[in-house]
């Protein structure tokens, strides 16, 4: 019984906060590693459709992004409400695609160039007309690996 009584009289030790910075730094490094800075401002609104057969894009440096969607509210006045293509941070047409691909290509080491993937981020409301045009432009430019960006969903039964 008197085993428990021992506690009485002992002063309360303060919890050491010395390791708190370490814990916080650990979290910090985690977020620093997983963060991908948003380097382009989206000028078109994009809500990607969902699909089940997804492939992850592994190497970010080997990927170039092409956005297709309707201009956001801010740009509606200037660019209308028809679906538009965005390359990098500006609006573009299909004629700008070869130069855009070439600009990205030179940043990639020669040995890895065949594995460059174009990621198409397309809004689900867009019709295939503009997407088909982009596909044709990509094929003409010799960029045949394409990834249709989509959200994850379960396979239908």
């Amino acid at each position: 019984m008197h085993k428990f009584n021992k506690k009485v009289g002992k002063s309360k030790p303060a919890i050491s906060t010395a390791s708190l910075p370490d814990i916080v730094f650990m979290l910090l490094f985690f977020f620093m590693v997983v963060t991908k800075m948003r380097d382009t401002e989206l000028k078109v609104s994009i809500n990607t459709p969902s699909a089940s057969e997804l492939t992850k894009l592994e190497k970010k440096t080997l990927v170039n992004f092409i956005y297709i969607g309707r201009p956001t509210k801010k740009y509606e006045k200037e660019f209308g409400t028809k679906p538009r293509i965005q390359l990098g941070d500006k609006f573009a047409t299909t004629d700008d695609i070869p130069l855009f691909l070439e600009k990205h290509k030179v940043t990639v080491p020669e040995a890895q160039r065949p594995s460059i993937i174009s990621s198409l981020k397309v809004d689900s409301d867009v019709t295939m007309g503009i997407v088909g045009d982009v596909k044709t432009a990509l094929r003409k430019a010799g960029q045949v690996k394409v990834n249709y960006s989509a959200k994850k969903r379960e396979r239908t039964k």
Partner: peptide, 10 residues
């Protein structure tokens, strides 16, 4: 969410 349906165009 860099995932998507991978397609090889002709």
């Amino acid at each position: 969410e860099d995932k998507g349906v991978l397609v090889k165009l002709p």
